[in-house]
Computed example of a mutant assay.
Amino acid sequence: MSRPYKIPQSVLVVIHTPALEVLLIRRADAQEHWQSVTGSKDTEAEDLRDTAVREVFEETGIACGAGLVDWQLENVYAIWPQWLHRYAPGVRHNTEHLFSLAVPAGTPVRLHAREHTAFQWLPWQAAADACFSPSNAEAILMLPRFAARA
């Protein structure tokens, strides 16, 4: 059975401690790519907050609580050519909605082995430098401002 096309609406969730150490996870399909939690909506009707909660749990085993913050920001970017086949013909751009999740230092991480092979906690500036995605790095650089509001 073929998989349905991905919906070009996704979330990016910057997971961080109170000291602004950021969780990065390494993609299984691109070992040089470190990133925050990302994922697409499962259905058009799925609420973006529900997408964020689901993706965080699926990718890290972390249950979202009150620390999940919707930044009310989005990025629109061209889908990388190697991943265009996952989307309907003619779909070339994705809209990514930004969230952050504050967790206590030492929060255990349980990776979904098919998607990610390693994780690391880095100070926010180092995490931004380590990200392969410019929009992910930019979100991490905005983290101190959003964390202060929460």
Rank of each mutant, 00 (worst) to 15 (best):
V103M: 00
Y77T: 11
R92H: 13
P81G: 10
W83V: 09
E96N: 15
Q72M: 06
E74W: 12
A78V: 12
V76A: 09
P81K: 12
N94Y: 05
A105D: 10
P81V: 08
R92S: 14
V76K: 09
H97Y: 15
R86N: 10
A105C: 06
P104N: 02
L101M: 03
A102P: 04
E96T: 13
W83E: 13
H97A: 02
L98G: 06
L84G: 05
W83R: 13
L101R: 00
H85A: 12
L98H: 11
Y87H: 06
P89S: 06
H93R: 15
L73F: 06
E96Y: 08
L101T: 01
I79Q: 01
W80R: 15
A88H: 06
Y87R: 02
P81H: 11
E96L: 14
P104Q: 02
H93W: 10
L98S: 08
L98F: 14
R86E: 15
L73V: 04
A88W: 04
W71Q: 01
H97M: 02
L98C: 10
A78K: 12
L84W: 02
A102I: 10
H93Y: 13
E96K: 11
N94V: 14
N94F: 06
R86L: 15
V91R: 01
P104G: 03
Y77G: 09
L84D: 04
L73K: 07
R92F: 09
N94H: 08
W71H: 05
